[in-house]
């Protein structure tokens, strides 16, 4: 599904954010990406969503090398990837419904068919009753779930989340993670960047750890780490 082959990313100014990173995320797999602040987690996700391009190496999704994707094709590639952000990035002047509908509107959906899909997505995150609200009237956890609904409304095969629980208390974080688990169980590949080690440990999924841009660990969490 998603494969990194010796991927490096240097930012202008010579800073190396990712250094020869390789891994593969299988179809229907769920994994966490951890590491200290500045380790390169966001950078890695940005390479997948084509916000950034690698300096070296190849990023491959479903057998297609992203370096072959032209800038005109980028929007179409992004429609296959659901993205969730720490600051949820909702449109402030639009209702929850409109926010979730945005990816569908972009793809040309209209009317009842669009409404049906939006309601299904809102139902999956448990926010059906908030459809008519504006984002500013929502709590942090609710806003994050709206972001998730928007990311999954057009049923992308791959879901990326960058610190989706960054601002949430432990209980809310657990709720959000359950939502991700549910999508994963429906066959979606999920990659979540997070430094909430305690939460990840309890969930017992594959974990990849970055340190100064290098992948220093890939696999289930060790017992001793779990004990921390």
């Amino acid at each position: 599904m998603l494969r990194f082959e010796q991927v490096s990313k240097g930012y202008p100014g010579g800073f190396v954010a990712l250094d020869r990173v390789s891994f593969e995320l299988g179809k229907g797999e769920m994994a966490f990406l951890t590491g200290h602040s500045g380790a390169g987690k966001s950078t890695l996700l940005k390479l997948v969503s084509l916000i950034e391009r690698p300096s070296a190496g190849r990023v491959i999704i479903n057998g297609i090398d992203l370096s072959t994707i032209t800038s005109r094709q980028i929007p179409y590639v992004r429609r296959d990837i659901g993205m969730i952000f720490q600051d949820h990035r909702l449109l402030k002047t639009h209702t929850v419904f409109d926010n979730v509908a945005l990816p569908l509107v972009i793809e040309g959906f209209t009317g009842r068919d669009m409404a049906r899909r939006v309601h299904a997505a809102l139902d999956q995150v448990g926010l059906l009753d908030k459809a008519r609200c504006l984002p500013e009237t929502l709590s942090g956890g609710e806003a994050q779930r709206v972001g998730i609904a928007r990311a999954v409304v057009n049923k992308p095969p791959l879901l990326l989340a960058d610190e989706p629980t960054g601002n949430l208390d432990p209980d809310l974080s657990k709720d959000i993670m359950r939502v991700f688990e549910a999508f994963n169980q429906a066959g979606v590949s999920v990659l979540i960047a997070s430094h909430d080690l305690g939460l990840i440990a309890r969930m017992r999924y594959r974990m990849m750890t970055l340190k100064s841009g290098r992948m220093i660990h890939d696999g289930l969490m060790h017992k001793e780490e779990e004990a921390q």
Binding site: I61, N62, I64, Y76, V77, I106, E107, G108, D113, P157
Partner: peptide, 25 residues
Amino acid sequence: SILFGGRATGAESFNPTFAGRIWMA
């Protein structure tokens, strides 16, 4: 879809006729 060959996206997934898609546009 570019990445996922079989995945129909957007208007073409629910409106297979050309006229229907024009109407949507």
